[in-house]
Design a protein around this nucleic acid. Sequence first.
DNA 1: GCTTGACCCTGTAGCCGCTACAGACCCCAT
DNA 2: ATGGGGTCTGTAGCGGCTACAGGGTCAAGC
Lengths: 131, 131
Amino acid sequence: MMKMISIGALGKATGVNIETIRYYERIALLPEPDRTSAGYRQYGEEHLRRLSFIRKGRDLGFSIEAIRALLRLAEHPEQPCEDADRMTAAHLAEVERKIEELGRLRDALREMARCCAGTVAECRIIDALAS
Amino acid sequence: MMKMISIGALGKATGVNIETIRYYERIALLPEPDRTSAGYRQYGEEHLRRLSFIRKGRDLGFSIEAIRALLRLAEHPEQPCEDADRMTAAHLAEVERKIEELGRLRDALREMARCCAGTVAECRIIDALAS
DNA sequence: GCTTGACCCTGTAGCCGCTACAGACCCCAT
DNA sequence: ATGGGGTCTGTAGCGGCTACAGGGTCAAGC
């Protein structure tokens, strides 16, 4: 007999919000679990594994659709993993792009910051936006 | 007589999408302009200045609400600019936080990437998520 | 004068990835 | 019997746009 757990227990075990778990079910990222006679969701090992996978993917910043694809891949261990490789590379490139963009932002903000002991009229921040 | 321009011209001048301009009006970030007899929006210098301000603020990553506050500040040049200073510092801190977070993400992704010439079963990427 | 095509209008719905209710039901301990 | 937790469904909201549909308007060219 498999050990079944409630949605609250699953949430605690994976660090995923209960509402989010139900959301994942709604968008068919997590399969519908069995129910108790009262209609409560009951999860088993497989759900726990799958949700952990999703959680780790999200923590790595993969989109839901990317995770959907990665899950499909994970279900076919005999296939080549080019796709996973390509997705990771693309995501990495995107992250690197964002870092650069934020770096430029940071520089611009540092440039502006510490403007004032003065009034708005002489404020470098407001000036940078208004000019 | 002030030179009036259409929403399309305003969009071109500021680099802001027309739909976005109307959105800014709807959320009262940009004041309602006059209309021609046919109901077309007509913008003047002041709108142009204000929308440029908004655009620059958005480019710097300020939230709409932050920009709203900065605009209010800009309208009161005699006041002290502590608020602008504080908001910029907070935003800068947030950007720096995000950069660090993305940096950690990048490292984790680099660690995983270039896993394979093999199958999913031996894929470091899938493994990292599943384990 | 008429057509064509570019512009503009309103209103609404969708995107992503959740999150937050309301209002009900259920389970267990006291 | 009661109370306090957990759970259920369904829907609406967040930020910041973006994308229509289905219409009206304007200016240039014939």
